[in-house]
Measured scan of single mutants.
Amino acid sequence: MSIQHFRVALIPFFAAFCLPVFAHPETLVKVKDAEDQLGARVGYIELDLNSGKILESFRPEERFPMMSTFKVLLCGAVLSRVDAGQEQLGRRIHYSQNDLVKYSPVTEKHLTDGMTVRELCSAAITMSDNTAANLLLTTIGGPKELTAFLHNMGDHVTRLDRWEPELNEAIPNDERDTTMPAAMATTLRKLLTGELLTLASRQQLIDWMEADKVAGPLLRSALPAGWFIADKSGAGERGSRGIIAALGPDGKPSRIVVIYTTGSQATMDERNRQIAEIGASLIKHW
């Protein structure tokens, strides 16, 4: 068994979910400061990975656009189908120029040979490839089937209604394609530690997140040497930005962190900087 497989195998399969305990108010002060700096709502939650206990939260039950963070949930649904014998990671999917949508850096290079389901999930999570996400959504039956998958695992909040790139529209008070920080954190924890997926599929999902190549300016920029992070970022219209992550010291994950913001006029660089500063405070007061 590899070190990575050993790491995931040791994560307990508890489903406990406790009331908020504000253990590190310094980080919450930074979250509130980020709201002021961005002129926007910021949602934040931090869960203990083992117990599910809420360590910190701010606007945990307010809706925020999911943006590309939904791609982790999508690949979780795909892996669930693989575990059930309904899908194969090695199955090759062919597509055409007409299937390509905005921001598809991986799929646009494989119009001739197509891509396997495994490769599409990797592209969707590590590079946030939008066409890969749409092709994967098609394999499970579309956005409503992803919502149904989430409902079946106990998440009655998170919903996907549209395809890429329309799902990033982020209209105020529009519940389409949204989640809440508390719901997303709990669902991510179930996918990474629960019995919904096999150990091999849980390991595959966290491996894809660990290999994320487009979230460098966010939490990763604040991470000390030797820390572990597996994450997925998202960006949308109307100043929307977000990240979901499993992270921790000593090379293994010990907490789930979810950060969303929407409604800002700030630049992407400024949104990234504020999320990175929240991450720096989190690590400082770990």
Rank of each mutant, 00 (worst) to 15 (best):
F64Y: 06
Q4H: 08
K284G: 12
R189C: 13
R202L: 04
V117G: 01
A16H: 14
A246G: 06
D250H: 12
T186V: 14
A266V: 12
A246Q: 05
H110L: 06
D177L: 00
G236S: 07
K213A: 09
N134K: 03
E56A: 14
Q37R: 14
Y44T: 01
M115R: 03
E56L: 07
Q203G: 11
V257I: 09
D36S: 11
I11R: 03
K53N: 09
P181I: 03
V72E: 00
S254T: 15
N272K: 06
S80Y: 13
A200C: 11
D250C: 13
D161S: 08
M115K: 02
E61V: 12
D48A: 08
E145G: 14
P172K: 10
R81V: 05
Y44E: 00
I140K: 01
L55R: 10
G239V: 00
D250Y: 12
M268E: 06
H24P: 12
S57I: 09
V72G: 02
D48E: 09
R176S: 10
K284Q: 12
D174L: 02
L10T: 09
M180G: 11
M127K: 09
L167Q: 04
L282R: 03
G239L: 01
R238T: 11
A183R: 10
P217A: 12
M268A: 08
I259V: 08
L167H: 02
R241L: 02
R202Q: 08
A276G: 10
S221W: 10
R118K: 09
A225L: 14
P20A: 06
I278L: 09
E175Q: 12
T178F: 01
W286C: 07
R59Q: 05
E119A: 14
I206Y: 15
A170S: 11
E169Q: 15
G216E: 08
E237K: 13
Q88P: 03
R118W: 15
R238M: 13
S264G: 14
M180Q: 10
I11M: 13
I125R: 00
D48G: 05
T186A: 13
S221L: 11
S96Y: 12
R176L: 10
S221I: 12
L219T: 03
A246E: 05
G90E: 14
I171M: 15
L160R: 03
S221G: 10
G242E: 00
P253G: 08
V82R: 06
D161V: 06
W227V: 01
T178C: 07
A235S: 09
A266G: 13
I206R: 12
R91C: 03
A170Y: 11
G142V: 01
I244Y: 01
C75G: 11
H24S: 15
R202W: 02
A225G: 14
D250S: 09
M115G: 01
S240P: 01
D212K: 04
Y44V: 07
L136I: 11
T112M: 04
H94L: 12
E175H: 13
S240D: 06
L218R: 02
L137G: 03
H94Y: 14
S51A: 09
C75S: 07
L28R: 07
K109M: 14
I244F: 02
S2A: 06
K213E: 09
E61G: 14
G236A: 10
G263R: 07
H5R: 07
K53T: 14
E169V: 13
H285A: 10
D250E: 15
L219F: 08
A183P: 08
M268V: 10
R241Q: 04
L219W: 02
R176P: 03
Y260D: 00
F17V: 11
V21R: 03
A215R: 04
I244T: 07
R220Q: 04
A124I: 02
P172A: 12
D174N: 05
S80G: 12
D212G: 07
A225C: 15
E119G: 11
E145P: 11
T187N: 09
Q97L: 13
F6V: 10
E164D: 00
I259L: 12
G85I: 04
G39S: 11
A123E: 04
R238K: 14
T178A: 04
V72D: 01
M268T: 07
T178Q: 02
K213V: 13
P12R: 04
I171R: 14
R238N: 14
R189I: 06
H94E: 11
T267G: 14
F70L: 05
T178W: 00
I243D: 01
H94G: 07
P25A: 06
Q203A: 11
V42S: 02
G263V: 04
D212E: 04
I275L: 08
G154T: 03
F14C: 07
G239R: 01
A222G: 11
G263A: 10
L218D: 02
P143A: 07
T179R: 00
A222S: 13
P217T: 13
G52A: 07
D33E: 15
P25Q: 07
N98T: 11
S240I: 00
I243S: 01
E62G: 08
L146A: 05
P253H: 10
M268K: 05
R92G: 05
N134Y: 02
M67R: 01
T262S: 11
A225D: 13
N272G: 05
L10I: 14
L150A: 11
P181S: 03
S68A: 00
L38S: 08
M153R: 08
N168M: 04
K30Y: 08
D99A: 14
I278M: 10
A266E: 13
L135V: 11
R162L: 04
R91Q: 05
